[in-house]
């Protein structure tokens, strides 16, 4: 079960509001995504100050199996990246919804979350035919 304190995309990213007044959010990839990727060995993340576009490419995740693009769940500007992932990308395998967050950002418009999937919608989406 995905946590219901955040929203999800069909590209298997999650985003959660940290401070609604400051429009700040944190984003990562889902447990389903990390399980599909297998052992993650490398992240290429955006830089602080980079602009994010909803469903635009924001980086790459590389597992032993393959390279996949990371897509931003939101419009906004990057304020922080999870530096721990540079040396410990396996944190995303171990704790994708917590310690394994990818980026923090200031959102252009927090109402954008209303257009994303809820946890139950996302779980239904990933449970469906692959």
């Amino acid at each position: 079960m995905s946590p219901d304190d955040r929203r999800y995309t069909k590209e298997h990213e999650w985003v959660m509001i940290e401070d609604a007044a400051a429009k700040s959010a944190v984003a990562g990839i889902t447990d389903f995504a990390q399980d599909q990727l297998g052992d993650i060995v490398f992240f290429e993340l955006p830089k602080v100050g980079d602009s994010l576009t909803h469903l635009g490419k924001m980086g790459e995740v590389e597992s032993v199996k393959a390279v996949s693009d990371l897509f931003s769940p939101i419009d906004g500007v990057v304020t922080e990246i999870n530096e721990k992932l540079l040396d410990h990308p396996e944190l995303v395998n171990q704790d994708p919804f917590g310690e394994g967050w990818l980026i923090k950002a200031t959102m252009t418009d927090i109402s954008q979350l209303d257009g994303l999937m809820s946890a139950s919608d996302y779980d239904a989406f990933t449970a469906g035919p692959q």
């Binding site: 297998g38 052992d39 060995v41 597992s63 032993v64 199996k65 395998n93």
Partner: peptide, 11 residues
């Protein structure tokens, strides 16, 4: 199977 539950690195 590409991998079993242990995962590629552990395997």
């Amino acid at each position: 199977p590409v991998q079993y539950p242990a995962g590629i690195l552990a395997e």
